[in-house]
């Protein structure tokens, strides 16, 4: 059984106890994805599985057969940062940086959800085809990613800067 991680095909471990998070960090040495709470409460371990943002700490690696995984390491190419990575730097979207890979992967997943018109609890008219893109929506939709340094204002600034046009 194999999965694809950042474009590379890798074999899935035999031990079904291995979480996707530990597989990425300990087996593949992709330590960009972070282990915060390891219980689904903080969002630091967020990665994209087939383009959907999920928590790698609560995903078993064995469940990812034939899946396509993207981690923070897969977002830049040839030393060129993803525009959102660059925007986090420009807007002070972090202090310690521990939650940042999860924040960025989560925001990319969020953008895809907003393009699809997935509602949030702030959505007024559920029948509307297009969802609003504003700071409150970003805050609500990013509420699964905690930042203990309190860099949330910079995080929202960075996401707005890069994604405002793309979302609408």
């Amino acid at each position: 059984m194999t999965m694809t991680v950042n474009g590379n095909t890798v074999s899935i471990p035999n031990d079904p106890r291995v979480s996707l998070l530990d597989f990425l960090r300990e087996h593949l040495h992709l330590s960009g994805t972070k282990k915060g709470c390891n219980q689904g409460a903080c969002g630091a371990c967020t990665v994209l599985v087939d383009g959907q943002r999920v928590l790698s700490c609560l995903t078993l690696a064995v469940q990812c057969s034939e899946r396509d995984i993207t981690t923070i390491e897969g977002l830049s190419s040839d030393g060129v940062l993803h525009p959102l990575q660059q925007a986090f730097i420009e807007h002070d979207g972090f202090q310690c940086g521990y939650c940042t890979p999860g924040q960025i992967c989560s925001a990319i997943g969020m953008l895809e959800e907003m393009r699809r018109g997935v509602p949030s609890q702030l959505t007024g008219d559920l029948c509307a085809e297009v969802v609003a893109f504003d700071r409150d929506e970003v805050r609500e939709r990013m509420s699964g990613n905690l930042c203990r340094c309190g860099a949330h204002n910079g995080i929202v600034d960075a996401i707005e800067d890069v994604f405002r046009e793309a979302a609408e």
């Binding site: 967020t46 928590l55 609560l58 609890q121 939709r141 699964g144």
Partner: peptide, 14 residues
């Protein structure tokens, strides 16, 4: 409305 009031987007995707 009940679903989007629950958990986080990542957890709802799972």
């Amino acid at each position: 409305r009940a679903i989007v009031a629950g958990a986080s987007p990542q957890i709802r995707n799972m």
